[in-house]
């Protein structure tokens, strides 16, 4: 059996090697920088150890960014899953096979669009004067809605674009998952007097628990990386109401102050929080 032992390492080796170079080295470098007082404007730096971290917790803008990131994560993941499930189940129940194919193609198009394009398209649609969405509102009511300039409206508008891209795509995946289920348990449930809603509530969705959890985690990870969407649509505004952690770290590190060590300490905190949260969620959901 000695011969078989080395095979896993042969397959894992190259992947692990690339991961170490691409992920581990920058991570260690970032942790190292976060313990210094390096800025982009000065060539030298000293170790200040945990001063950056301590400063973060009295930085109101950082705490706001943490809260915005948390809200963003909850809103975008929940809305995407609910939309995906609702539309997926609706297609499964009501659409003919031909109709399903047409809808699936249409629903995949948004996610194929690069984030930045989608963000620009919708930013324009929300424009108070030229927007395709605001125009009918203005014609009907006479007021000029500027959704992106109100704190709540801006967050919801960005979430809407996220759901438009991912919720519809998830609907397609969920429809395909439903179609892949064996039909007999569903028939048995009909004979057991379950209503259409109850069949999904008690039979199909529990049967799809594992893939749905995977989808949820994929979306949660994807939502963490929505820098480009937020950056194009609101730049964190109005004010700091849509400024997520990565937006704030970016502006501290590159745009406003060039405090690269300070920004790195934020990145490290974000990484730790993410690892803890995801490990916890993964274990919890897979129980």
């Amino acid at each position: 059996m000695r011969r078989g032992r080395s095979l896993p390492y042969v397959f894992l080796g190259p992947t692990l090697g690339i991961l170490i170079v691409l992920a581990l080295v920058p991570t260690i470098y970032a942790i190292n920088i976060s313990l210094q007082n390096r800025t982009l404007s000065a060539p030298n730096a000293d170790y200040v150890w945990f001063a950056n971290y301590l400063a973060l917790f009295s930085d109101a803008r950082f705490l706001n960014a943490l809260w915005v990131s948390f809200k963003w994560e909850i809103i975008s993941v929940t809305a995407t899953m609910v939309t995906g499930l609702a539309i997926g189940i609706a297609m499964f129940e009501a659409a003919s096979p031909r109709m399903r194919n047409i809808l699936c193609v249409l629903f995949i198009i948004p996610v194929l669009l690069p984030r930045v394009c989608a963000a620009f398209v919708w930013k324009f649609a929300f424009h108070p004067l030229y927007g395709a969405l605001t125009w009918p509102v203005r014609e009907l009511t006479g007021i000029t809605p500027d959704i992106l300039s109100t704190p709540l409206g801006a967050l919801l508008a960005v979430a809407f674009v996220d759901v438009w891209q991912w919720g519809l795509f998830f609907a397609v995946i969920i429809l395909k998952l439903l179609e892949s289920l064996p039909p007999q348990p569903l028939e048995a449930a009909r004979i057991d007097r379950a209503t259409r809603f109850e069949i999904h509530r008690f039979v199909t969705l529990p049967m799809l628990k594992a893939p749905l959890i995977s989808l949820l985690l994929v979306k949660a990870i994807e939502s963490l990386r929505s820098f480009d969407l937020v950056y194009v649509m609101t730049r964190g505004g109005p004010g700091i109401s849509t400024e997520t952690l990565d937006m704030y770290a970016y502006s501290q590190g590159f745009i406003e102050a060039g405090k690269i060590s300070y920004a790195s300490s934020m990145a490290v905190i974000m990484m730790v929080l993410t690892i803890v949260t995801f490990t916890f969620t993964w274990k919890r959901l897979n129980r």
Binding site: Q184, E187, A189, R190, D192, R193, F202, M207
Partner: peptide, 29 residues
């Protein structure tokens, strides 16, 4: 509807609910 016909059916491939325990399978109806 099948549920309102007063029938019960046994399928060739059992058609049990895979995520439920035996007890829950039996009492679901």
């Amino acid at each position: 509807d099948p549920g309102d016909r007063g029938i019960a059916m046994v399928f060739q491939n059992y058609a049990l609910y895979p995520h439920m325990s035996v007890r829950e399978n039996i009492t679901f109806g």
